[in-house]
Nucleic acid binder design. Structure first.
Lengths: 161, 161
DNA sequence: AGTGAATAGTTAAACAGTTTAACTAATTTT
DNA sequence: AAAATTAGTTAAACTGTTTAACTATTCACT
């Protein structure tokens, strides 16, 4: 790829990812906004899928400091969506789980978002959307490995399935 | 596409777009964090590309209320990055432009981000990344047209170039 | 021309999310 | 046993957000 092509691709990517992200967050908020913030919804989602997790794990996944997670969890625990349980073997760690209400609320939100995303995703050919997601997942993998590497010696994944 | 396939694609998309977004924002912040927040950088970028714009235009692009933009612009004007100019023909409207410092800072940040994104984008085959961006742009177009439509009558773009 | 509606932007209060730095409590290392 | 590390919390300060009320200006129209 020559310099100019790269430049153009970077610019298109930056523009489009900003647009998609802003619009998607806004649409999701339109669906769930009365009950939860978007961040709170993602926390619910994370705990739902992991079953049980810790603040440190969330801080890692959300790329923020642990104190930011404490603040979010406090609000959600106050709302009765999340329960804290101390590990009896290592009393430093606190496990986060969904309460019954948290679980129900998550499933409710999920249904709405499902409906929304489905109305969008079905406008693509199956092969196109699949290839798109595969590349997106490769990108996620590259980014996840980004900090572990020395600069200049890029991590390589198989491009082109 | 059968229900189960759709379900799986939605789940993969949701997961991966969350991961990529969080990681990307975090990497960008690592590059520009001493000078600007990510939002401020996007505002700088928007004005740089439009040359001149209004608060309403920004509010529209960022999917937030105008008062949120006022707050951001106030901070950036205080830092001397942005200048406000009233339109003499329609004195309700205020044009936002970059100051010399704003322009310089933007170009500085842009260089850093360019370098970062380039190290990632070049790990893909040109055809793969191009197809990816094309689909991403279609998605952006669908989302941009989302609110204009009645529910159930989806807007169609050409899928598969 | 004059009134009522619409438009562009700001302000203020309240809240969510974030960082930094200092702190507590518990565990691991040596 | 002392020192270092780890998990999580707290407090202060700040950014970004919404809602509601407000100013100033322009538009629409009889």
């Amino acid at each position: 790829m020559d310099k100019h092509t790269i430049q153009e691709l970077i610019d298109r990517y930056t523009t489009v990812s900003f647009q998609v992200h802003k619009k998607a967050e806004s649409l999701i908020k339109g669906q769930i906004g009365d009950d939860l913030t978007n961040d709170q919804h993602y926390v619910l989602r994370y705990i739902f899928h992991s079953g049980e997790c810790t603040s440190s794990e969330l801080a890692d996944a959300f790329e923020v400091n642990k104190s930011a997670i404490t603040a979010i969890i406090n609000r959600m625990a106050d709302k009765g969506l999340i329960k804290r349980t101390r590990d009896e073997n290592d009393r430093r760690v606190v496990y986060l789980t969904l309460t019954e209400e948290g679980n129900t609320l998550y499933q409710n939100c999920q249904e709405k978002i499902q409906f929304l995303v489905e109305s969008i995703i079905t406008q693509f050919e199956e092969s196109e959307i699949k290839n798109f997601i595969i590349t997106f997942e490769k990108l996620a993998e590259i980014l996840a490995n980004k900090e572990k590497l020395s600069i200049g010696e890029p991590f390589r994944v198989n491009t082109q399935a």
